[in-house]
Design a protein around this nucleic acid. Structure first.
Length: 740
DNA sequence: ACCACGGCAATTTTT
DNA sequence: TTGCCGTGGT
């Protein structure tokens, strides 16, 4: 254990708390203990996390060594670390800042023995996992028409995310359950035998390891005196349990999140963790951050009104010191083409008037919608960039190259062997490979060993034997030639010697060229990696594995930046990938029933609420201008669909909306009516209750104001009551009490 | 080993 | 409509 000098006395901490609003300051300076920071969209959540860590270290005298900050994405972790270092103006290498998976991985590498793993266990990424499941299913002689492998992966991961092993699954007559249970069992065995760890396994194994080892648990409980969690609403059951386990009964967790932005329920995130936290973590206080620094009041009012329709949320109403801004524009297009044309025209106008292209985002529910938009933008000669799709380290050619590097590092890595052995093709086909697999299975050998054996003992003959022998020799030669090289030179040498460059060079057209460029980029990535210490060694930790091994691990845990084009460009992405981002102008397209809310989600109430949260996320991305568009006819899967416009549009207060018609902008009838009755240019009659205001009613209980209508004696408000749903009430008659 | 064809399904995505 | 996957032909 390293000793830390006690903190210098009487520190000046004004730089940590100045410039924060009251709520932020309250969070940053909260007493040590459990706290839930309910951070509304655009309320300065990362700022709070970063300043809180600085506060812990500089004001509370907590050792950086005892602080753990957990995020979901590498991007968030990198940003947090960078901002902490900027604020403290010292590199804080002792801090643990990382993703759940990254931290679990680190612990498992450190404690592989306690975790029951081989020292050289390997991480399976999603693609590796799918391949493995396919292989398992083939071995079990299952019809992958009837049982799609993707579904099996879904089944396995779903159970693992909930912490369930095969042995925890009940016996079931249901053929679906039975079949998948068999696949899961077989997959689990294969992983255990091969030292393979998928993403869910990293977390589950880490949890089980700590649970099963009192000494280890005590060590880490002692060590991590303060734990901060970002995007807490996205935690799944294992992550929640893991945090709970590490916390023990000492209050030390600051969870930051926004249940209204929980949009990943479908992949295991448990929105209920947020409320469970308040019950199960001792003395947890709630600190809401409601002041928004991003959007206009109109946008926030719309978002508040929309999300108020969800039940069971932690109460929260976003507000801003800024003005109302322009109304939200709704455009009803004839069809998807017209919708794209409209967006494109508006974008052109904005850019012509000095707007920056990269300040404009076009959002959609599903990727299939992007095509029409792309075409329209292309025609209008507007530069754009599409998020999503393949990430750098997921590209086939990159994975091929990495497989060679993995084999160089560990000859017995079967996953890599399978991938590299016939890419580029060298005459080792499925049949030869099956022979090797059988041999490996029979003798508990790696494919590499099986290959050696098959060649020596003549199990393989002729061409096949020669091809395998040559492959084995190739890898050995590469490994020998590369042993002393620094990582990036090693990467370059491996890529060259593997024949991948030549292989892709032979490919016709742009494709091969792009692949070659990607391989070049991999070499730069390796060079860059050498310069960075991701996790510097500390005290009792064991010596680092080779740089190559570390590189391969990091690549498995971070798929790399998405492809980025240079220059200003309009951003196209799904609503999901927009989370966490902000843009001066946002287009939300495809606002149609069936599409958004998506048909398959809107059937269950939880699904519909998640869709509504997704809509809330979309709306709150916008800083100044928000456009909602829908098409009366949409071509989808080759057929015309006639969808009603999304209920989410109807759920917005009409007075915040102006409908765009071909001949200019026209207000919606309801809003027009109201403005006439209140005098044309008069500012609207002050309704004593704001949209989003929480109220109490004698009979209906607590609720939230959704919208208001009329003025004076005739003012009516629509309120969403938690108990009874939506009601219109005459303000003069109903006894409503404003809460807060 | 490679290509061409037909059948089939078709949210959302990070690690 | 697209694109993926498996099959069957060369």
């Amino acid at each position: 254990m390293q000793l830390w000098a006690s903190q210098p006395p009487a520190l000046d901490v004004t730089h940590i708390i100045s410039g924060l609003n009251d709520a932020q300051r309250q969070a940053v300076t909260a007493p040590l203990g459990n706290a839930l920071v309910v951070a509304g969209a655009g309320s300065g959540k990362t700022r709070v996390l970063v300043h809180r860590i600085a506060w812990l270290i500089e004001a509370e005298g907590v050792s950086p060594y005892g602080v753990l900050a957990v995020t979901f994405t590498n991007k968030a972790a990198a940003e947090m670390r960078q901002r902490i270092e900027a604020l403290l103006s010292v590199p804080v290498t002792a801090l643990w800042v990382g993703t759940f998976h990254g931290i679990a991985h680190r612990l498992l590498r450190q404690h592989w023995q306690e975790a029951g793993l081989p020292q050289n266990f390997q991480i399976l990424d999603a693609d590796d996992q799918l391949r493995l499941v396919k292989r398992v299913m083939r071995a079990l002689d299952m019809d992958d028409k009837r049982w799609p492998p993707r579904q099996a992966v879904w089944f396995i991961n779903g159970h693992k995310d909930e912490g369930r092993r095969v042995r925890d699954l009940a016996d079931d007559d249901d053929l679906f359950q039975q079949t998948h249970k068999r696949i899961y069992a077989s997959y689990e065995t294969l992983c255990n035998e091969g030292g393979l760890v998928d993403f869910a396994e990293l977390l589950l194994r880490c949890l089980e390891c700590l649970r099963g080892d009192e000494g280890l648990l005590a060590h880490y409980r002692r060590r991590f005196g303060q734990i901060l969690v970002d995007e807490f609403q996205d935690t799944n059951r294992i992550q929640y349990e893991w945090l709970k386990l590490l916390a023990g009964d000492i209050g030390k967790i600051m969870a930051v999140g926004d249940d209204d932005q929980s949009i990943y329920g479908w992949r295991g995130a448990r929105i209920e963790n947020t409320q469970a936290f308040l019950k199960e973590f001792d003395g947890a206080v709630v600190i809401p951050l409601e002041q928004n620094y991003r959007s206009t009041a109109n946008i926030l009012d719309a978002a508040n009104a929309l999300i108020a329709r969800n039940g069971m949320r932690l109460p929260k109403t976003l507000w801003t010191e800024g003005g109302p801004g322009v109304p939200i524009k709704v455009y009803s297009a004839y069809n998807d083409q017209d919708e794209a044309r409209f967006a494109t025209e508006q974008i052109k106008d904005l850019i012509d008037n000095g707007g920056a292209a990269n300040g404009i985002a076009v959002l959609y529910r599903s990727n299939a919608q992007s095509r029409v938009l792309e075409e329209a933008l292309l025609r209008a000669d507007i530069p754009f960039r599409i998020y999503g799709g393949f990430r750098f380290f997921e590209r086939a050619e990159i994975k091929d190259a990495l497989a060679y590097m993995r084999l160089v590092q560990n000859r017995h890595a079967d996953i890599a062997f399978e991938r590299a052995v016939n890419t580029p093709s060298r005459g080792i086909g499925e049949k030869t490979l099956e022979t090797l697999r059988a041999l490996a299975r029979a003798g508990a050998l790696s494919l590499w060993q099986a290959g050696k054996k098959a060649v020596h003992e003549g199990t393989l003959k002729g061409r096949a034997a020669a091809a395998v022998a040559e492959f084995l020799k190739l890898i050995d030669e590469i490994a020998a030639g590369v042993a002393e090289l620094p990582l990036h030179e090693l990467a370059a040498a491996v890529i060259e010697a593997s024949g991948l460059i030549a292989h892709h060079g032979r490919e016709p057209g742009e494709r091969g060229l792009a692949r070659k460029e990607n391989l070049e980029e991999l070499i730069s990535a390796a060079r860059q990696f050498s310069g960075e210490l991701v996790f510097p060694l500390q005290d009792a930790e064991q010596p680092a594995v080779s740089e190559l091994e570390e590189f391969l691990d990091q690549v498995a845990l971070d798929a790399g930046e998405r492809e980025s084009k240079t220059g200003p460009a309009v951003q196209l992405m799904t609503l999901h990938s927009a989370k966490g981002l902000e843009f001066p102008t946002v287009f939300m397209t495809g606002m149609e029933e069936g599409l958004f809310p998506h048909r398959q989600s809107s059937e269950k109430p939880e699904g519909l609420e998640e869709e509504r949260r997704l809509c809330y996320v979309g709306i709150t991305r916008a800083m100044r201008r928000l456009y909602l568009t829908h098409a009366e006819v949409r071509r989808l899967h080759g057929a015309d669909n006639y969808n009603r416009r999304s209920r989410f549009i109807e759920e917005l207060p009409p007075h915040l909306i102006s409908e765009v018609r071909l001949h200019g902008e026209v207000e919606r009838p309801l809003a027009a009516l109201r403005s006439r009755s209140s005098g044309l240019f008069e500012s609207s009659p002050a309704c004593p209750l704001n949209i989003g205001q929480r109220v109490a009613h004698g009979t209906f209980g607590e609720g939230v104001v959704l919208q208001s209508e009329g003025n004076g004696e005739r003012t009516r408000v629509q309120v969403h009551f938690a108990a009874v749903g939506e009601k219109w009430l005459m303000l003069s008659a109903a006894k409503l009490e404003a809460l807060d």
